[in-house]
């Protein structure tokens, strides 16, 4: 029950309150670049959600077993190799390199898989897949997972990692689709010439960010409601 509360809180926090785009500013490049039309924005959002979930699960696995300060695998290998068991092995210095390769290869695999088994899906969002490798939102999700695996006092499981990734992906989709909807309307407006393009997009994003700030604190009350419901 307590874990369910935690999951709900992680999801709501990542999707709305601490929205990846509007609160943490990750994934700004596609947010500005691919937000002209709602259908394209939705395709991009789906692609990001898909990749972010796979990358989060993979990086959780690598971090838990390999990279965190007292991970089991390197310690076991070290002892098999005859090393002193009291020496702590910390491979976390390799985590950034590991994550970027996990992201790059999961993008590759998703692209291959989708092209082969779901050509229709590939047609709708396949073009965005190569762009996603340099999307900061995915690396950001991996980094949050790393932060929550470093302290043995509150170790995240795969469920928490996946929930964070899904929440982040949904939040990204929400933000980029809202933006695209507004920009479709803006096409019909007489925007001052210097503001056209990125300028007005950023101003609109600022207003959206203000709107999202209004949700702050909602997760607490949600937690209270869930607690009250189960007790």
């Amino acid at each position: 029950m307590e874990s369910l509360t935690l999951l709900v809180q992680i999801f709501v926090s990542a999707a709305i309150i601490n929205n990846f785009v509007l609160h943490y500013f990750v994934g700004i490049c596609p947010f500005l670049g691919v937000s002209r039309r709602v259908d394209m924005a939705f395709g991009m959002g789906c692609a990001v959600t898909f990749v972010i979930s796979i990358a989060a699960l993979l990086s959780w696995t690598f971090t838990y077993y390999l990279l965190r300060p007292d991970a089991p695998l390197p310690a076991w290998l070290w002892q098999r190799a005859g090393g002193d068991p009291s020496v702590a092995i910390d491979l976390s210095v390799l985590s950034y390199i590991m994550y970027i390769f996990v992201i790059a290869s999961s993008v590759q695999f998703v692209e291959m898989y989708v092209r082969k088994f779901a050509p229709k899906l590939h047609k709708s969002f396949g073009v965005f897949l190569p762009l996603i490798t340099t999307n900061c939102a995915i690396l950001f999700a991996c980094l949050i997972i790393l932060r929550n695996l470093q302290d043995p006092a509150q170790l995240w499981g795969p469920a928490e990692a996946l929930t964070l990734a899904l929440g982040g992906g949904v939040g990204f989709t929400l933000a980029i689709c809202l933006m695209a909807g507004i920009r479709e309307e803006l096409e019909l407006c007489d925007v001052p010439r210097p503001l056209r393009g990125a300028g007005i997009t950023l101003l609109v994003a600022g207003i959206l960010a203000m709107a999202v700030m209004g949700f702050a604190g909602v997760d607490q009350n949600l937690q209270n409601v869930i607690d009250a419901f189960f007790n």
Partner: peptide, 13 residues
């Protein structure tokens, strides 16, 4: 966060 978007948008303009 909104301030960041607004300032960058206006400076870009």
């Amino acid at each position: 966060p909104p301030g960041a978007f607004l300032v960058l948008g206006l400076l870009l303009a």
